[in-house]
Computed example of a mutant assay.
Amino acid sequence: MTDNLDKIKSVGIYVRVSTDAQDLEKQVEQLSNYADRHYPEATQSLYKDEGTGTDTERNGYKRLMDDLEQYDVVVVRSVSRVSRSISDLERTVDEFKENNTALVFMNEPIEFQPEDEDPYSRAMLQLLGVFAELEANMIQDRIKQSIETLQNNGFKWGRAPLGFSKNNGELIPENNLQQICAVLEMVDDDEMSQRKGAQRLDTSRTTIRRALEDEDRRQLYNLD
């Protein structure tokens, strides 16, 4: 568990339920009690989302990620509450590291520190990295196929979209395209605001909106 407990002054708690059968308040109580035991001197702030399985709004999670730098630790019930894929988890961990915030999954249990030296956590991240690399290669293949399909259908781009350059009229993916796709996916899933996404990618909110709303661009960023 997190060292230097006296330095833990603020804890964020995130809960999410996706069906009527899940008890939101029970999760709140469990996580609050966990934080009381492990971080007795810290103040607690609650973020929560509740909806059906088809409800993709995650405004509580988006607010948490926007406020992340305010917290020393964030506690959630399980990996599935914040991540739906291997690369999604890796992106989440990176986001926490950038904000110098620890991430604790109560049920697994797994804890990721901003500068983690724990062999188990390092091994977990290394394993996740292997799968993330495989997933990245698959995404790149799908993006290349989308480019070929659009070009074969006679589609011509004006200015090169975010994350691409042009060579003799053909789109060429840039080295940071995977990062761009990851950020756009988080914005599209309401896990990051357009403002923060634009800041992360050093671009404008108009560019972010165009990437998300234009059907052809969505194919390029593997959002469909």
Rank of each mutant, 00 (worst) to 15 (best):
M1R: 08
M1I: 05
M1Q: 10
T2D: 10
T2P: 08
T2S: 07
D3R: 13
D3H: 14
N4F: 14
D6Y: 11
D6E: 14
D6L: 03
K7Y: 10
K7R: 09
K7V: 01
I8S: 03
I8T: 07
K9L: 06
K9W: 04
K9N: 15
S10G: 00
V11H: 01
V11K: 01
G12A: 11
G12V: 02
G12T: 03
Y14W: 12
V15S: 13
R16W: 10
V17H: 04
V17M: 06
S18V: 10
S18L: 04
S18I: 07
S18H: 12
T19Q: 00
T19R: 03
A21L: 07
A21D: 15
A21V: 03
Q22K: 04
Q22T: 04
D23F: 10
D23G: 01
L24D: 04
E25K: 07
E25H: 15
E29Q: 15
E29P: 04
Q30W: 14
Q30I: 14
Q30K: 14
L31Y: 13
L31P: 14
S32W: 10
Y34C: 06
Y34G: 01
A35N: 05
A35F: 08
A35E: 04
R37H: 13
H38S: 02
Y39N: 03
P40W: 02
P40D: 10
P40S: 08
A42L: 03
T43K: 09
T43W: 02
Q44Y: 13
Q44G: 02
Q44I: 09
L46T: 08
L46C: 01
Y47T: 10
Y47K: 02
Y47I: 01
D49V: 01
D49H: 11
D49G: 09
D49M: 03
G51Y: 11
T52Y: 13
T52S: 15
T52E: 06
T52D: 09
G53K: 12
T54C: 00
D55Q: 06
E57V: 06
E57Q: 08
N59R: 08
N59A: 06
G60S: 07
Y61D: 05
R63K: 14
R63I: 06
R63M: 05
L64M: 13
M65C: 09
M65F: 12
M65E: 06
D66W: 04
D66C: 01
D67T: 02
D67V: 02
L68C: 08
E69C: 02
Q70N: 12
Q70Y: 11
Q70C: 01
Q70H: 13
Y71M: 05
D72T: 00
D72E: 09
V73D: 12
V74H: 11
V74R: 09
V74Y: 11
V75D: 05
V76Q: 03
R77N: 11
S78L: 00
V79R: 14
S80E: 10
R81H: 10
V82R: 00
V82Q: 07
S83V: 02
S83M: 02
R84C: 04
S85V: 02
S85L: 00
S85E: 00
